[in-house]
């Protein structure tokens, strides 16, 4: 198992309040790792800590490290812009820019100085194809992205994230705001792109984790209770707390 991210003793605080408590585990490369747990267990905070989305909060601070490509992404001298190119993020609600489909996809590339039209055209095509959206929008790339359906907008956001060729994609409940059919399409996209990049997804939907995850991490009250292969964790977890969570849904 090749390791993409190594989480070492990670604790996260907002002011005095501790949100994550000594999290340590290794995220395997080119696979889907789902993070599950009840609301408030720290799973979204964990995801946002990985690409430094919490830095903007004054009272945020952390201990421990997240090792990526041999470097600690939490160290002050790690360039955040480069980090966010290598580790992309997709959020719960689709958040396309109020621009054309084409401009949405190339947005990151333009920020990084890519201007050559043929390069941009090629990236738009390949990114939209990877997100299973190209066939539906290829004749209307100049259309405003807001005119797409919710599911299509979310796939556009995935295409936008893929356009800058990230090594890791973080997704925070990416299908909770869209209908089941659109969610299924996104799950298929994730399974497909996980052959090339590492995916870390926070989900409340255990069945979704069961469908797409190779590995699952179960968080509870800021702690990592258990991490392991999805089939093993969902069928015969080692920890009683995991079993209680997975079986308590019918109580």
């Amino acid at each position: 198992m090749d390791v993409e991210l190594k989480i070492e003793n990670l604790s996260v605080y907002f002011g005095q309040k501790q949100i994550l408590d000594s999290i340590s585990f290794e995220i395997p490369t080119k696979s889907i790792t789902a993070i599950i747990g009840p609301s408030g267990c720290g799973k979204s905070t964990f995801l946002r800590t990985i690409n430094r989305m919490n830095d903007r909060f004054d009272d945020f601070h952390s201990k421990g490290s997240i090792i990526f490509d041999g470097k600690d992404v939490l160290s002050a001298d790690y360039p955040v812009e480069e980090l966010r190119r290598k580790i992309g993020m997709v959020f719960q609600k689709p958040n396309p820019f109020p621009k054309s489909i084409y401009e949405n996809v190339v947005f990151g590339l333009k920020i990084h100085g890519v201007k050559e039209r043929s390069v941009l055209d090629e990236v738009v095509k390949s990114s939209l194809e990877a997100a299973s959206l190209y066939e539906q929008v290829k004749d209307k790339l100049s259309m405003n992205a807001y005119k797409l359906s919710g599911g299509q907008q979310q796939r556009l956001c995935i295409a936008r994230a893929l356009a800058v060729k990230p090594e890791i994609l973080l997704l925070d409940e990416p299908t909770s705001a869209i209908d089941p059919l659109a969610a299924k399409q996104i799950e298929e996209v994730l399974e497909q792109i996980s052959k090339e990049i590492t995916i870390l997804i926070v989900t409340h939907n255990i069945q979704q984790a069961a469908r797409i995850a190779d590995y699952i991490a179960f968080f509870y009250m800021g702690k990592l209770v258990e991490f392991g292969k999805a089939e093993k964790l969902l069928n015969a977890p080692d920890e009683k707390l995991t079993d209680d969570y997975l079986t308590g849904m019918y109580g």
């Binding site: 255990i206 069945q207 069961a210 969902l234 069928n235 015969a236 977890p237 995991t242 079993d243 997975l246 079986t247 849904m249 019918y250």
Partner: peptide, 10 residues
């Protein structure tokens, strides 16, 4: 109907 998991599934 219930998609049982873990010990419930077993």
């Amino acid at each position: 109907r219930f998609h049982p998991l873990a010990s419930d599934l077993r």
